[in-house]
Nucleic acid binder design. Structure first.
Lengths: 209, 209
DNA sequence: CGCAATGAATTGAACATTCAGTTAATTAAG
DNA sequence: CTTAATTAACTGAATGTTCAATTCATTGCG
């Protein structure tokens, strides 16, 4: 009889695997309910294996934040806004930023826990600041493009970008309180409308000017 | 010699006292670090006294959410927007909503933890929904007032109110990432400006119309 | 072989909770 | 007014469990 051999993985595979399980445990039971033991049980490995890779739980948490933030960063790099025509582009951009894919890339519940940690944990705080700075830079670049094309009339694009980030995060903040999909979709539409208003967007004229 | 008598308090005094200590412990050490033992130590009482009043930790948490939400509700009831002249009023309202007092009424870090809990905990979720509904109703009433006066041109005041709530929470979400007071104040000003734009606010004409 | 991956066994502290008992305040009866 | 009975506030000890972490042994791959 062939005993089911355990497959040995290297750190490069195992560490992210553990982090993903840790993340899933936080989603299911909250940060306060995510112990090393539970993560190990979920993976059918020994708790000490987790300690082997991360030394301390705090380490594991910091690395988890890195992991999540990288995921989010990837999202930023791969934003697919193709249109060059500014009117098309701004609508496509907003559609992406308020898309389900964007919303679901990370788990909002777990993100809240991590944001809470960022108040007490300098390393985590720094990582979030970096992420949001990246995000702001990306948006500011887009805003400048729209301003150059003369289709919006916002003020300083860098600050406006930050306000925009607030709106996007505020949306993530609230979305889950809208239970039925109708009101959820209406909320989404209204958010887009609000952003366009906020930016002083001038729609394309249908016929003459 | 008079031995320092322990003061006996009744439930009406003791329970909120415990809740406040629980809240402070969450602020200091996170929800994941807020144990009954730590709360008791902070108060110089015995852990079992906490159990006496709340039976379970989960109970205590639900009652904490009630407590916080009541605090926030009080804030709503006591909003001091006195001006009747609509232009003055809208500026005063925004100043209140983006004031330091408003921001500091509850602790954002602890709020994040509770919001995270609301994803898994039906009772907590319901309470948050109620709070935000209250908030939305309050804002919608104000919006209607401004629309009637013809100084803004928003759409459905109820939905616009919800977008506004998102913006306010998004602001709370971000404020703590702005470390120096200069950029923090600039961010605040820009948020107000964004809201006025969003609402289609038409400023008072200085001279003729 | 050598080293990384993994597992077992165990530590001591902290955890929420229970329970039995004590102390103080309140009420009612004498 | 005094005192006994009742109730609520509170304490202390002990419960079994889970926690993160350590130490040391074993296994398998290159």
């Amino acid at each position: 009889m062939n005993k089911p051999l355990k497959i040995r993985k290297n750190a490069e595979l195992r560490k992210p695997e553990i982090l993903r399980s840790f993340y899933q445990t936080i989603i299911d039971e909250g940060l306060e309910g995510a112990s090393i033991g539970k993560v190990a049980r979920r993976m059918n490995i020994h708790p000490s294996l987790i300690m082997h890779y991360f030394s301390t739980k705090e380490n594991m948490m910091t690395e988890l934040v890195d992991y999540i933030i990288n995921e989010y960063g990837d999202l930023l790099k791969n934003v697919s806004v193709h249109h060059d025509e500014p009117h098309e582009r701004i609508h496509q951009l907003l559609d992406v930023l308020w898309s389900d894919e964007w919303y679901r890339k990370t788990d909002v519940s777990a993100d809240f826990s991590m944001l809470s940690v960022s108040f007490r944990h300098e390393k985590v705080n720094r990582r979030f600041r970096h992420l949001y700075a990246q995000f702001g830079k990306f948006l500011a670049k887009e805003l400048r493009r729209f301003m150059d094309a003369g289709i919006i009339s916002a003020g300083d694009p860098d600050i406006t970008a930050e306000v925009l980030v607030s709106l996007i995060e505020g949306y993530r903040h609230f979305k889950h309180f809208y239970v039925d999909s109708d009101s959820s979709e209406r909320f989404r539409q209204e958010m887009k409308r609000a952003v366009l208003n906020m930016l002083g967007y001038r729609p394309k004229q249908a016929g003459a000017g």
